[in-house]
Design a protein around this nucleic acid. Structure first.
Lengths: 225, 225
DNA sequence: GAAATTCCTTAGAAATTCCTTAGACTACTT
DNA sequence: AAGTAGTCTAAGGAATTTCTAAGGAATTTC
């Protein structure tokens, strides 16, 4: 995990850098906003932490410029000012968190970790769709309900995946044809009905709560109750 | 944007709910952790805000369980405790931010917005028509009045949707024929009257306030009073 | 107030939509 | 070459919705 510190107080820099490195972070330092922006162009950071009061353009302006450039890296602003107004200005400028000096290093680290966790880069994310006890593992290509394995054919899984990506939304058979089968025309058959039936037999049969519902005349939904 | 508040102090709930709704949020409330978990299964939230001290399982445990279930919605923890240790425990449990009571609503809102901005995926906007306690969800194809589910057939729903898109406006039967039935000629039947009757039986019957009114000789309207 | 018009309600026939099952066809495996 | 698994078509019947028709109620017009 890589972090960019933008800060001009030497003491603060030293203690933060040391602490972060002890916890396995790679730390880059910039002493003013412009240097910071340049570094952001060159590296991919997991978190950026900037003091609000730094030489050149300040932390808020830096934040705005980053967001305008499309950089989505989480930003943690540091400041001696503890007033609500400043916090709000900072968060509205596109920052993700705000910490008031003085602070304990442990809190700084916890917030940095919380921010980095959000991006997903660095920690590999599970690739699992979940809905009400149903789990579809996109990597393993497996489906479970209440922990019990369910064997699905590729088509069945594609249909279930489609429904699970938008739980609660009703899809017409035409939409399903297009999105799951890539059919832009009506084949005149009842293909979707048949596959919904297959899915129900495997996913819902034997469970008291049905998840696949038909909205007569409208389509099918994945929904509880 | 939709937020889940988990909190048992009535005063806090009221002020937060009101403020959030004034800023265009849809707010759901849970009074304890278990109710919260249940709601999370049912809806897709953009942010979850929970007090740490709530009946049943506490905010930290809730947080852990959410993450374990694969829910990635950002969590903002609220607490009267301001010690660093608690903050760290909270953030380590998978929370994304931590706010100490008492706080100003403005700061709460700013943090909530910062969190919701991050999600990206959960940015789907709701597709719901509302009028005087009536809700028509265009995605789920469901209708509720005062929270009570109402089952409509596709035609009935199309008619209600049409009326709900122009509340207060009177539509003649000819207009309704054209817009809802796509009929450009008079079939000589009383089709629209029949369907208005169907709708009334499902939407207005049992409620003291009728919403569907007939303007004799002019047509039909959706209107209060 | 009577006649004319418009609207409400109900029942049932017609049409549509959906479910289920069986089997044909294809592409792999053994 | 037979077997297996997956995909798709077809067809009957079940379920639900849509529409028509007709008599009575309410409202307006004369």
């Amino acid at each position: 995990m890589r972090i960019l510190l933008i800060e001009d107080e030497v003491k603060t820099i030293q203690s933060l850098r040391q602490g972060l490195e002890e916890h396995g972070w790679t730390v880059d330092i910039a002493y003013d906003g412009e240097a910071g922006l340049r570094l952001v162009d060159q590296h991919q950071y997991d978190v950026i932490s900037s003091d609000i009061i730094i030489p050149g353009l300040n932390g808020l302006e830096l934040c705005r410029q980053l967001r305008q450039k499309g950089v989505q890296t989480p930003v943690l602003l540091l400041s001696a000012l503890g007033e609500t107004d400043d916090k709000i200005t900072g968060l509205d400028a596109g920052a993700d968190d705000y910490l008031t000096k003085p602070f304990e290093f442990r809190e700084f680290l916890a917030r940095v970790k919380a921010l980095s966790r959000r991006t997903g880069t660095g920690y590999q994310q599970e690739n699992i769709l979940r809905f009400a006890g149903l789990e579809l593992d996109l990597d393993a290509k497996t489906v479970r309900r209440e922990g019990k394995m369910i064997n699905l054919t590729p088509r069945e899984m594609a249909l279930l995946e489609f429904l699970m990506r938008h739980p609660g939304k009703v899809f017409s058979k035409v939409e399903i044809s297009e999105k799951v089968w890539d059919l832009d025309f009506d084949t005149g058959t009842n293909l979707i009905e048949v596959y919904v039936n297959y899915l129900r037999n495997k996913v819902d049969k034997g469970f008291s709560q049905k998840l696949i519902h038909t909205q007569f005349g409208q389509g099918y939904v994945l929904r509880e109750e």
